[in-house]
Design a protein around this nucleic acid. Structure first.
Lengths: 204, 204
DNA sequence: GTCCGACCTATCCAAAAGAATAGGAACATA
DNA sequence: TATGTTCCTATTCTTTTGGATAGGTCGGAC
């Protein structure tokens, strides 16, 4: 099982590759950015699986995926992502990726997914694909109701309670209520902190 | 060497801990967020080293660091960060962290740093501390006065005017003034939007 | 010197945000 | 049926914001 792993975080790259080698018996090549990955693909031939970090120098969203797909001679290319908006998974698969791996996934599951993809099977975690049509299932979003997510979206655009109320066709008091529960759930002291943590979590 | 590692990305957490165990012979406990970490600290006693992910549920910037420091009975608490603004490292150390580890650091270096910190020595990568003085002036920051930047920093932590005033040893009214001019300069309608645009511009 | 910009303070006021509490409707599940 | 969750509304109250206006210091530029 020959794998190419490209991630710009040295620590993540090295520890994951050590894990794949030790626990999975894989032969892992490493790159720190897209151009490094492209070089390795052309010099060391097609890999059974190429794993690209989504936020990495040269990736430019899914453009890097397309390049790697073309270079890897028909074999699979998967996307690794730390905190991606949920719809990115679908977009990646639509763009031809053989899999999408969020870093919130466990190490053992990663190993299984890697074996899967190396064998040519498409892999994507169920939670993400189910989220496809409805709300994004972010680890942080799981604890929020649909309505709360709508309000949080307003907060993340810096809207006032009144504006959010108009937009959702609700009373201002109701928005206040949701803002309060949101602050509790997000462990924020006020709307600004709530908006910031939501943004940092990549929810919007 | 007893270590507590807290990170919300299962993959990162599990592979790093496997690495520390296999290559470093460390005894590693795991948590997925700050509250989980706090529980473990109080139940399994002080660790030789506690490593906290900077962007993790419950952390609230460096507030989580303070809590962990207090709980860990004088032993060290370090911060792990994926993509941190350069000044965060200094801020973490000023707040009492025993070290600051960017995930761009190699796995072997991590191991060395962990040994260092477990022994009670403060660790920080040279590049980050050097970047300290040669601060890259952000295009957006050029139009803001030093004082305005200080206030903006408070905004980006979701502080109230009163809290910012205390921190900078000014009157609350003065903070209001700066907030108003900041909103004008950043083309924001309120403090929340100002904080969000500053964050998006990567100012903090 | 004067002017200007950055900075700080003050008072007054209206609007918004936040906290506490209470209650009702819809819906799914046990 | 009972139970629990989510969602919406209401009232009352305090705190925080944001806006307007007016004045003060200090340091550098002209």
């Amino acid at each position: 099982m020959r794998i190419l792993l490209a991630d710009d975080h040295d620590m993540v790259r090295e520890t994951i590759s050590a894990y794949l080698r030790n626990e999975g018996g894989a032969e892992v090549s490493l790159a720190t950015d897209l151009s490094g990955a492209m070089d390795l693909i052309s010099s060391e031939g097609p890999f059974d699986l190429v794993l690209l970090d989504y936020q990495m120098p040269g990736m430019m969203g899914l453009d890097g995926l397309a390049k790697a797909l073309e270079a890897n001679g028909g074999k699979g290319v998967g996307i690794l992502s730390g905190s991606a908006p949920a719809n990115t998974a679908k977009a990646a698969l639509d763009a031809g990726a053989i899999g999408f791996i969020p870093k919130t996934m466990g190490a053992q599951s990663l190993l299984n997914a890697v074996r899967f993809m190396s064998a040519g099977e498409v892999y994507a975690p169920v939670e993400l694909m189910r989220a496809d049509n409805t709300a994004p299932t972010h680890p942080l979003a799981e604890r929020l109701s649909p309505r709360e997510l709508e309000v949080l979206d307003g907060l993340c655009r810096g809207l006032s309670n009144k504006e959010i109320a108009r937009e959702l066709d609700l009373q201002e008091v109701t928005i206040k209520l949701h803002v309060r529960t949101l602050c509790k759930k997000l462990d924020a002291k006020n709307r600004t902190q709530a908006a910031l943590t939501a943004k940092e979590a990549g929810l919007f």
